[in-house]
Design a protein around this nucleic acid. Structure first.
Lengths: 110, 110
DNA sequence: CCGATACTCAACCAAACGGTTTATAAACCT
DNA sequence: AGGTTTATAAACCGTTTGGTTGAGTATCGG
């Protein structure tokens, strides 16, 4: 599990981490705020953030005693590009995509 | 790691499995042909195929003594749809996508 | 029937993962 | 200075993962 794409997929293969990214899509947040929804110690969240950061999916800065996390979408582009190679036709794939997105609009998931 | 999306991401988080999918994008193939490029026992490949199948990324049939595997793209649509939620604007994301695909055209990866 | 080929199952093993607890560092606030 | 809050580090632990070997199943072809 050393290459970029593997790290990205592995990072996304966890509901907690996807939920964290979902939260970050609404804007940056410090660790304790990210940890709050989960029945889990802050240390566990810290580990998840480390995984996300090492996959390039988030970046962290410092603001006083807080460490705000920000979503970084670049690795997601790589994923989408990789997936795009497995579609026979772009038109078809976008049709399916639209259907998927419609299905998804009323779910939350992480 | 029980939900659909997690299983899909986890299945994709391995270079061997991605290489298998890449091969299958050119058409169905039996296990021994899929195993051939790898320095690994057929049993290991069989395990990988099991992971891919349980993620819905391939389907297997029987043809005599062979078990041809076929690529199934439906889970990839779910992944792309999930990722799409993290783009601020579609236009931007397609621009980036194009760039990524260009970068990728001259790589092989799995 | 017999052997070869294609594939899978089961047991095992080292390494990685996802969580915990304990301890530590850094910034804030009296 | 001292205590609180925010966050990470380190050690540990049970489970999963990715590979192995060895045995077993199924189909083909004499």
């Amino acid at each position: 599990m050393d290459d970029e794409l593997s790290r990205t997929f592995a990072a996304l293969a966890d509901p907690t981490r996807r939920a964290i990214l979902a939260r970050l899509a609404d804007g940056p947040a410090p660790v304790n705020e990210l940890a709050q929804p989960f029945d889990m110690t802050p240390q566990a969240i810290s580990k998840h953030l480390k995984v996300l950061e090492s996959a390039g999916l988030i970046s962290r800065s410092r603001q006083g005693q807080w460490r705000p996390c920000r979503l970084e979408v670049a690795p997601l582009d790589a994923v989408t590009a990789w997936i795009a190679r497995y579609r026979a036709a772009w038109a078809d794939s976008f049709d399916r995509l639209e259907a998927e997105i419609k299905k998804m609009r009323h779910k939350e998931d992480g």
